[in-house]
């Protein structure tokens, strides 16, 4: 095996390593954690799905999107529309068309359709937004987020407006989250290794040189935006089915900030950065929340003042930006050493 082949093979180990890491995380919590930790694990894996989806676009194109929480919002509501009991829907959402009001789908096809609807919305809005370049595109995605939020908060007969939609089937366990997170990771790795992924990263590095190499920036951006929105739609659906309650404001600024923070902490330059960022931030938040509730050390009771969790996470983000501006992984991927992979391949022959 040549060195080049060995390297190619080694790069395939990245998604496998990441999935193994997440599996270990779930197993650990399954073995030692309580119910609230189990919920935190499920939430973390949903966030992996969201942030890896987000990364497919933002990481490869270098365009920061503020609009991806809107795709999660659409996904969550589509799944609610398709799975809620018809009696519940006639009460909460009287404006739904008949065939939707009567639908009572299984949760899996509903999650897939949630992703597909988010992707279609991305295709339609991206066709306009992604013709803009640089910061203009980012600001347009923010406007899109605000529009979706406003529509959802006011389209009361169909979305329930600002009051929450309740009664979603709570089927999301850490294992369900792990399943979707794994699918997202595999698709992200395949897209990253594809010709379109490479072309998009070239536009991220230098737009002029990329177009001189024959790359149609708009087309590749739109492709990544659409795939990216699919996983954010699925992630939104899973969020709804984790808590059982959805509300337009649950998919607005704080989710946008959280997704960005996770990507920045882990490092936007690599898929592993996206996954590690979610894990690190989620675990840190959980630890701080517990400290806020208070811990007993021997005879002394100790508790952080309420709200210190948000402040400490903000501080941690600032420190990462100052001392490691490319994120914890700084654009590198978790990978098995090429020499090791080559050795393995030889011995198995």
């Amino acid at each position: 095996m040549t060195e080049h082949q060995a390297r190619k093979l080694a790069s395939l180990t990245t998604p496998l390593l990441l999935i193994a890491l997440l599996t270990a995380f779930v197993l650990l919590i399954d073995a030692f954690g309580d119910r609230s930790l189990g919920r935190m694990a499920a939430e973390t894996l949903i966030r992996v799905t969201l942030v890896v989806g987000f990364w497919i676009f933002a990481g490869n194109s270098g365009v920061i999107s503020f609009g991806h929480a809107a795709f999660a919002c659409v996904g969550a509501y589509v799944s609610a529309w398709m799975t809620l009991k018809p009696a519940m829907k006639s009460l909460l959402l009287p404006g739904l068309p008949d065939w939707v009001a009567q639908a009572e789908w299984h949760v899996l096809p509903a999650a897939v359709v949630a992703g597909v609807m988010a992707a279609l919305l991305a295709l339609a809005t991206g066709a306009a937004i992604l013709r803009l370049s640089g910061i203009a595109a980012s600001i347009a995605t923010f406007a899109f987020l605000a529009m979706v939020n406003t529509i959802w908060a006011n389209w009361t007969p169909v979305t329930g407006g600002t009051s929450s939609v309740v009664g979603l089937a709570r089927y999301v366990t850490p294992w369900v989250g792990l399943g979707w997170a794994s699918v997202a990771i595999v698709v992200a790795a395949i897209y990253g290794a594809s010709a379109s992924g490479l072309a998009l990263r070239a536009t991220r590095e230098d737009e002029v040189a990329a177009s001189a190499s024959g790359i149609d920036r708009y087309r590749h951006r739109l492709a990544a935006f659409t795939v990216s929105a699919f996983f954010c739609g699925v992630g939104g659906a899973l969020m709804g089915h984790l808590i059982g309650v959805i509300n337009p404001d649950g998919f607005y600024l704080s989710l946008t900030f959280l997704m960005l923070a996770m990507l920045v902490v882990g490092g936007i330059g690599s898929l592993s950065g996206a996954v590690v960022g979610v894990l690190v931030v989620s675990i840190a938040v959980e630890g701080l929340v517990r400290l806020e509730k208070g811990v007993t050390l021997g005879a002394t009771q100790f508790a952080l003042p309420a709200g210190s969790q948000e402040i400490l996470i903000g501080l941690a983000m600032i420190f990462v930006l100052i001392f490691r501006s490319a994120g914890l992984l700084a654009g590198r991927d978790l990978i098995l050493p090429a020499a090791w992979v080559a050795g393995r391949a030889k011995t198995t022959k």
């Binding site: 990263r201 070239a202 590095e205 230098d206 002029v208 040189a209 990329a210 001189a212 330059g269 654009g331």
Partner: peptide
């Protein structure tokens, strides 16, 4: 192009 403009992070 002038100034090479290679894709530095690739």
């Amino acid at each position: 192009p002038e100034g090479r403009r290679i894709f530095r992070a690739l």
